[in-house]
């Protein structure tokens, strides 16, 4: 037992170390297999017809779905970001103590975060599509999905606001700024990277969402003419390709595009977060 790594270590320690490494390897290999398999099968199937401007049942072009995804994401963020950031401002700047109301708000946000997307889909269908008579539409879909990402934006914004040093607020007040001015001119700019990383996480969730959209935004693969048009996002497009099973090569190719999109979004979120931690070290 002169091996350096095991020197002076009992058997149990070696085993414990072994199983943690094994588990990490299993996790890593699983991801590698999934990503690798999709890439190997999908990249050869990518051709120009996949990006043709008009969708036909022949070319199964993803251009319309891609543009719909961008519209859906933008609309959902326009609704969710002001609400989420506003809520975070209330929780951090206006009530630091944990009163009953704050506990209730936090509990509600945690509950929202735990509701599965299919339940949001049902709710969106019952409320936006049927009761408010929006029909299957871009608007109904983005409202549903805005509620879904609200807790994500709230939580990340709250963390970002909390990490702004107290001196910033004290400095602003000492210079005679009111509360509002302090929030908008001092605190929000200082917390902007954290809020941005939360928005990017939310974008990732919206891009990947399918269950909440099928019964709210519908599955029509056309450019929307208004917010009341039914639209299919990239993930919903992928779902119909995979479940129909008629264009399996197109499904692989679409999966590659979707995967690349998600990887870029995640890398962006990590980069923004890393910039924050680096910025902190310079303080």
């Amino acid at each position: 037992m002169n091996n350096k790594a095991t020197q002076g270590k009992d058997l149990l320690s070696v085993i414990l170390r072994g199983i943690t490494v094994a588990a990490a390897v299993i996790t890593g290999v699983t991801v590698a297999i999934i990503v690798g398999y999709i890439l190997i099968k999908g990249i050869p199937s990518i051709d120009s017809s996949l990006f043709a401007l008009n969708y036909t049942s022949d070319n199964q072009s993803l251009t319309t779905s891609f543009i719909n995804t961008v519209l859906m994401t933008a609309l959902a963020l326009v609704i969710a970001v002001p609400l989420g950031v506003g809520a975070a401002i209330y929780l951090t700047e206006y009530t630091r103590n944990s009163g009953k109301l704050v506990t209730l708000i936090r509990y509600a946000a945690e509950t929202l975060a735990g509701i599965p997307s299919i339940v949001y889909g049902l709710f969106g269908m019952l409320f936006f599509v049927v009761s408010l008579r929006m029909g299957f539409s871009l608007l109904a879909g983005s409202l549903t999905i805005a509620i879904m990402v609200l807790p994500t934006i709230m939580r990340t914004s709250e963390e970002a606001l909390l990490s702004v040093p107290m001196q910033y607020r004290e400095g602003a007040f000492a210079l005679g700024a009111g509360k509002l001015r302090t929030v908008f001119r001092v605190i929000l700019p200082a917390a902007s990277s954290g809020i941005l990383s939360g928005m990017i996480l939310a974008i990732g969730r919206i891009v990947g969402e399918s269950a909440a959209l099928i019964f709210t935004a519908g599955t029509v693969a056309e450019f929307p003419t208004s917010v009341f048009s039914s639209t299919r996002t990239l993930s919903v497009h992928m779902y119909s390709l995979a479940s129909e099973g008629l264009h399996i090569d197109k499904a692989y190719a679409t999966a590659v595009v979707l995967l690349a999109l998600v990887a870029i979004i995640n890398a962006a979120a990590l980069l923004v977060m890393r910039r924050i931690t680096k910025g902190r070290q310079h303080l």
């Binding site: 890593g28 990947g208 399918s210 999966a255 998600v262």
Partner: peptide
């Protein structure tokens, strides 16, 4: 490693499903 776990969380369920199916 942290990028891999965040990517795992970000992969859409439909892609997991498609991988499972194929």
């Amino acid at each position: 490693v942290e990028f891999v776990t965040s990517l795992m969380a970000g992969i859409p369920s439909i892609i997991y499903g498609f991988f499972g199916l194929t």
